[in-house]
């Protein structure tokens, strides 16, 4: 049983979805997260234990991504393997047997249409047990404020790629903080830095998806 759970974590890390998936090359023909999760649940393994194994797998691939040992395609394959697990665990979330760690509202700020980084963060955060509300791209401050209203207690993630949309990001942080001073906001994207995040009054900055997870799992402390 322990072996089964460990294998699910390994498959998440390696991005192995199911037996017919040709990725990764050295695991061809082996079972993936899809089959192993079904087997684990049938064998009586608790969904929490499976979720923890997935989180550990996502953390390992996220750490390798942070060290530039793997890149976005590998991370996306892991997210896909994780999604296969989540499809099996969905009924447990719906019945409340498994609870999401919290709610994370994310979007690319107004004036910016770049969504790859934002999507990647959303997938990794979701894979780590958080419920994600994705507002999309070119999101005006008022839409973020409305989303906070509709999702009390959520944490907000703002993404930008263009240097010039940092102005809109700063405005978004201010508007959220003006109406919901207790709401934590984390920012990220190519032109950002810790210094820029501090300057705009954000609670956190993450240079990669794993940094967002660390921020969220760390109790959303500054």
């Amino acid at each position: 049983m322990e072996n089964l759970v460990a294998r699910i974590g390994e498959c998440v890390e390696r991005g192995k979805v199911n037996k017919s998936s040709p990725y990764p090359n050295d695991m061809q023909g082996q079972e993936g997260t899809d089959e192993l999760t079904r087997q684990a649940l049938d064998a009586g393994v608790g969904p929490d234990e499976i979720l923890q194994a997935c989180n550990d797998g996502m953390k390992r691939i996220g750490d390798r991504f942070s060290r530039n040992e793997v890149f976005v395609p590998e991370l996306l394959m892991s997210a896909k393997a994780m999604n296969a697990v989540m499809a099996h665990l969905k009924p447990y979330f719906q019945t409340g047997t498994v609870k999401a760690k919290g709610r994370f509202v994310i979007g690319t700020v107004a004036g910016d249409l770049h969504d790859i980084g934002k999507n990647l963060v959303a997938m990794v955060v979701e894979g780590n047990g958080w419920e994600v509300v994705d507002l999309g791209v070119d999101v005006k401050p008022v839409r973020f404020v409305d989303a906070v209203k509709q999702n009390p207690g959520c944490t907000v993630g703002l993404s930008a790629l263009l240097t010039t949309t940092m102005v809109n990001m700063s405005k978004t942080v201010s508007e959220i903080k003006a109406q919901f001073p207790g709401t934590k906001v984390i920012v990220g994207g190519a032109p950002l830095s810790q210094k820029a995040a501090d300057k705009m009054g954000a609670d956190g900055y993450a240079p990669n998806p794993q940094g967002v997870v660390a921020f969220l799992d760390g109790g959303v402390q500054k």
Partner: peptide, 10 residues
């Protein structure tokens, strides 16, 4: 291009 090199996208 606007949006890069600190040239406002607006």
């Amino acid at each position: 291009s606007p949006g890069y090199c600190n040239w406002s996208v607006s």
